[in-house]
Amino acid sequence: MNRNPSTDETRFQQHLKKLQKEKRSIMIWQLIIFTSFFSLWEISSRLRWVDPLLFSSPTKIGDLLLAKITDGSIFMHMRVTLLETVAGFLLGTVLGILLAATLWWFPKLSKIIDPYLVILNAMPKVALGPIIIVALGPGYFSIIAMGAIISVIITTIVVYSAFQGVDRNYVKVLRSFGANRFQIFKEAILPASFPTIISTFKVNVGLSWVGVIVGEFLVSQKGLGYLIIYGFQVFDFTLVLASLMIIAIFAAIMYQLVERLERKLIRG
């Protein structure tokens, strides 16, 4: 059929080149947006198109970050917030999945508490902040609890509905081999729901940052949320924006880690 295999090969090479070119062009555009955003910000701040007191400028933020990194004071805040967020994320996600499993195990229970779940989900969880702080004391525990509570109910609801959506015929296959309820859960229900569970991970990464930062707003003496609220109180918006930058970078890293986990867990 292929009278001239070298042309096929060249066509394939051309195709590869085209893909590479496309990839490069996307990266170039991303770089253009990045640099023009920051240069525009810098220029408009220097030329006073915007209020430099309010919007600061990239160089001021950079200087501040550099100073805080050299004297080492920023690391303590970073560590505290990161630990709280990771703990809140893990706690909220794991608790949510466990709750979903419990609901799956006891179908009657899930029918009974359904309206309560709906209400809890609709309620703004950060409004519970003051109660949590009084109950658990102003410290790590309250902030971790804030990071967890914000994601636990939505995780429960989403994961439980994924459990319910698993094709009944997989269960039928397992039951024909005499599987018990736990085996059905372990062999079919849970692995079939992995894609949904991973996507709740992605949502929860963002949610735990919200919970923890709000928690730090309310109570803390340390952490990036504290730096933001402190910067706001002393009208140091360079500090506010610098903290925000760090949060954005950390959140992006966490998201990347979850994506890597996704590729590992979901094959094919």
Binding site: N169, Y170, V173, L174, F177, E187, P191, F194
Partner: peptide
């Protein structure tokens, strides 16, 4: 029991799927 569709578990290899009965 053989069903209309194969209902092989997509996250298991063919060998693991075939050994599902003994596994359970």
């Amino acid at each position: 029991y053989m069903l209309q569709q194969d209902y092989l578990f997509p996250w298991k290899t063919i060998q693991e799927n075939v050994l599902l009965g003994p596994h359970i």
